[in-house]
Design a protein around this nucleic acid. Structure first.
Lengths: 145, 145
DNA sequence: CAGTATCCGAGAGGATACTG
DNA sequence: CAGTATCCTCTCGGATACTG
């Protein structure tokens, strides 16, 4: 049985009803286990994905400039994260054949729209951090420490 | 001298707020390595955090209903994720002393506002998935497979 | 500068069993 | 039902070294 999202994944332990009912539902849904949109969401919201997306603003950015912007990221994770985002079409990568070599990353249109939404989320959360920290203090004090 | 984020920093001290009003420099910033907002962002955008937040809609939801909504999540990850979100003040947990036991989770005001932004992001990404999949196909075809 | 390759430990995360 | 506890696996991700 093949769903609209490809072959049956052996990792899925859930007994999925093998009806073609789902084939009628062509909408992507991140809450569905094997929907491709879930993987893309993970690239954008993963541990480094969000931070890399947030660090991509104001025109092309070079690799080491990005490293500086995303404080704490390793070369490996930045490289892997950028590859995933490029693969999904959020980021465009341009190699300039200069000496020393220079590579520039910029958001695509899709990436820019995504960036705006992530930025909104980040700014919102930052603005509410006092409330979050108050909740944390209450939680610890409440015997859940 | 310790900054509010725990490192050596000649600029400010959390333990001694009366030293001076550097509050302007102390805005939360997720791109800073040890800013508390980065941890909260991770809880909200981590592998399961986003999906759990998205699955919390329309009033109180019970544990196993959430498990069903977030397809593929294990009991452990759901439990841990909900704890983190409760601790940060996004989710409220209410235990009803019935038989059998019943526990209801609902979004706080903070959680609801966060949910709206995550939902926007998810819906946006879902709507653009055809574009993403086209980009993926191009990427593989371009010798980067 | 801009990466890739390799090694390795820590922790994420799944399966199972058990409790109130 | 709603979890927690335990065990165990596997991936993530950091450090280091190397290439163009």
């Amino acid at each position: 049985m093949v769903s609209i999202w490809g072959t049956v994944d052996p990792m899925s332990t859930r007994a999925e009803p093998e009806t073609d009912e789902r084939a009628l539902d062509l909408a992507y849904d991140v809450l569905q286990a094997r929907c491709p949109s879930r993987l893309t969401l993970e690239h954008v919201t993963g541990r480094w994905g969000t931070l890399i997306m947030l660090a991509l603003y104001e025109g092309p950015v070079r690799f080491n400039e990005l490293r500086r912007r995303v404080a704490g990221v390793s070369e490996k994770m930045l490289s892997q994260g950028l590859q995933a985002l490029e693969r999904d079409g959020f980021v465009a990568r341009e190699v300039l054949s200069t000496m020393p070599p220079r590579v520039e990353y910029r958001l695509t249109d899709l990436g820019l729209e995504t960036h705006r939404r992530l930025k909104e989320l980040a700014v919102f959360l930052e603005s509410r951090m006092p409330e979050v920290e108050a909740a944390q203090a209450r939680y610890e004090a409440g015997g859940n420490a």
